[in-house]
Design a protein around this nucleic acid. Sequence first.
DNA 1: CGAGTGATGTCACCTGGTGTCATCACTCTA
DNA 2: TAGAGTGATGACACCAGGTGACATCACTCG
Lengths: 189, 189
Amino acid sequence: MGRWQPDARMRLQEAALALYSERGYDETTVAQIAERAGLTKRTFFRYFADKREVLFWGAQFLEQRMVAGIDAAPASASVFGLIGAALDAAAVQFEEVREFAGQRYRIISSSPELQERELIKTASLATAIASAMRKRGIGETAADLAAHTATTVMHIAYTQWVEDAEQRPFEQIARQALGQLRELVAAAE
Amino acid sequence: MGRWQPDARMRLQEAALALYSERGYDETTVAQIAERAGLTKRTFFRYFADKREVLFWGAQFLEQRMVAGIDAAPASASVFGLIGAALDAAAVQFEEVREFAGQRYRIISSSPELQERELIKTASLATAIASAMRKRGIGETAADLAAHTATTVMHIAYTQWVEDAEQRPFEQIARQALGQLRELVAAAE
DNA sequence: CGAGTGATGTCACCTGGTGTCATCACTCTA
DNA sequence: TAGAGTGATGACACCAGGTGACATCACTCG
C-alpha cells in the first residue's frame, strides 16, 4: 500500500462520471470533482490535461486494438477487409466496457464541448489506422479514405449499438452498416 | 453611415486572422483582437460565441450550398451521384475564398483547439447533408453513411487542394478522390 | 423636444488552467 | 537509525476566457 490513497486517477474518473451525470457537465466544476475524490483541483490537472479528458481515458486502448487488428489481418486481405478487421477489434473493446458505455454516451451527447473532444479523438484514431494501412503498402489517399470510412462506420454503428433495444452485439451492427456502405457505393450509376 | 464604425464583425474577423497568423492562436488574447478592431473584449463576445468561432463564420454558407446542390440534383441521381453534387457545390464556395483558404488552414492546423471546432462544424455539416438525403427518400443509415462519406472526401480533397503545387481546382481533386473511394470499395473481396 | 432603441463600454465575477514552492510520508543509504 | 532524497499532493497566486448587469451615447421617431 502506498503513502497516499491509491488509484487517484480512477477515483477522479468515477467522481467526474457521477457528477457529470447527476448535475450535468457544465454545472460541474473541477473543484467539485476533486473534492469528491478527496483531492484538490491542482491534482486533477496533474492527471488530466483538462476537464474533458477525464472522459476519454481509454481511447488509447481502442486505437491499439484496432491497429493490432489490421496488423494481424492475413496478407491476402483487401482494403475493405482491413476495415472489417479494425471494426472487429473495436467490437472487443466496446463489449468490455458496455456497462459504462451508455452513461458515457449520454454525457457526451449533452455537451458540444465533449462532442468536439470525441471528434478529435476519432480523427486521431483515423490517422493511426491510416498509418497501419500504409504500412501494408496501401497508397496515401486510399489509406486515408479507408481509415475515415472505418471510423465513420464505427461511429454510426456505436450510436445504434448503445441505443439498441435488442442489445445486439456491436460486431453485428457494424457488419451490417459496412454492408450497406458497400451496396451504396456499388449502386453508383 | 451609422452611429458607430460599421462592420464591427468583419473588423474583428480581420484582426483575429491577422493576430493569429502573426503571433499564434494561443498567444493572442481576445482583448488584443478587440483592441486592434477598436472595440472591447465584451463586444467581441457579442459577435462570436468564443475565441474560436471567429474563424468559422462562413460554415453556414457552405452548408447551405451543399444542401442546395443535393436538392437541385436530378431525381434520377444515385446516392453516389448526390455525393458528387454536394462536392461540386462545395467547390464553388472554396474557389470563392481561395485567397484566405491557405492562411486560415495554417492557423487551424496549428491548434488542436481549432481542429476540434473544425471537426464539429464538419459533423454538423454531415448532419445537414444526411437530412437533405433523407428528404429524397434515402434510408437513415444510408443517408448517414453517404453524408459522412461526402464530408470525408471533401476534407481529404480540401487538404490536398490548399497545398496543391499545381493549383488544380478543388472540383478536380475531389472527383479524383471520390473515384478512388469507389475503386477501393468495389475491390472488396 | 423628449421618449425610445440598439450597439457599445464598464465593471465585477466565476471557472478553467498553470507556475511555483511548501509539505509530508515514505525509501534508501551510510 | 539519522538524514538525505523522492514523488505525490496541497497551497497560493495568477492569467485568460467567458458572462451578467447596468451605464452610456448617438441616433430615430412621433
